[in-house]
Amino acid sequence: MSILSLRNVSRRFSGGEALSGIDLEVDRPQVIGLVGRNGAGKSTLLRLLPPFIHASSGSVEVLGMDPWADPIALRARLGYVADHDAVPAGVRGSDLLALCASVYPRWDVALIQTFQRRLGIDGNRLFSALSRGQQRQLALLMAIGHRPELLLLDEPAGNLDPAVRKEVLGIIIELLNESGTTVIIATHLLSDLERLAERLVILSHGRKVHDGSIEDMTRQVCRVEVAPGAIDLGRLAHSPLLLAQEPHGLGTVIILACSPSEAGAVVAGLAGPGTVVLDAQGMTFEDAFIYRTRALAADPVAAGRP
């Protein structure tokens, strides 16, 4: 069954195009990490699905349905945690959860009580009186008690300390262990994504610029050290494969959009045969991501290229 199908989806706001020409197919349960700089279109993409906003063009299908055909029926099958608090502050935690239980026929009271106890969330306190971490945890519990088929998380653990973040991730992992929920998680916290996501979608200027595994993305960036004077940097600067360059010791370090094993051939192609590559190494996910997206941000034309 198709869980999600976006075809050539664009969304324009008065300020310009927030999403353009997005294609995204999800046909089996998985965890998808949605990343990109601020304003890249992550939240806009998520908000198309429950649905909170209309696409300007293109087609959107969620859990096999046109989301606007019956939003209530769709929302019974998905969960959404906004990046801001969409929860009324002056209500007690237990009343919020009771409200959810009354709205969703499939609400799993035992599951939520177990999590609530473990996280130490006092249901008698007003939402506004809970710590920031507990507010985020409660918002997550409100989004999962009906065991959604699709869970949309917009920065679920942003601004939380590492211990609380780990608890939030723990809830998601246990939910995944128990049921085949598809999760789309938009976040800046790459180390969290590395732990959770099987698939990485990178947005830049409203376009999809990567769709594959974290390893695929990381493998395609490498750090190459070349001997002093070996390379004509002026010539290299015009190649889209060159992501960055900086002096290093006596030689130069260049960051290339290729795998370490291809580095020799790429450098030879760019700087002429016989250029001495001292060392070519892979990078961490975080470094690879930073160099890739920085190059895209500097060059919106390149960002449009898949």
Binding site: V31, K166, I173, E174, N177, R195, A197, E198
Partner: peptide
């Protein structure tokens, strides 16, 4: 692998 996933906070598929 599921217990280890919870213990390490990683996706059990990993």
């Amino acid at each position: 692998h599921r217990d280890l996933a919870v213990q390490l906070t990683v996706n059990s598929l990993t």
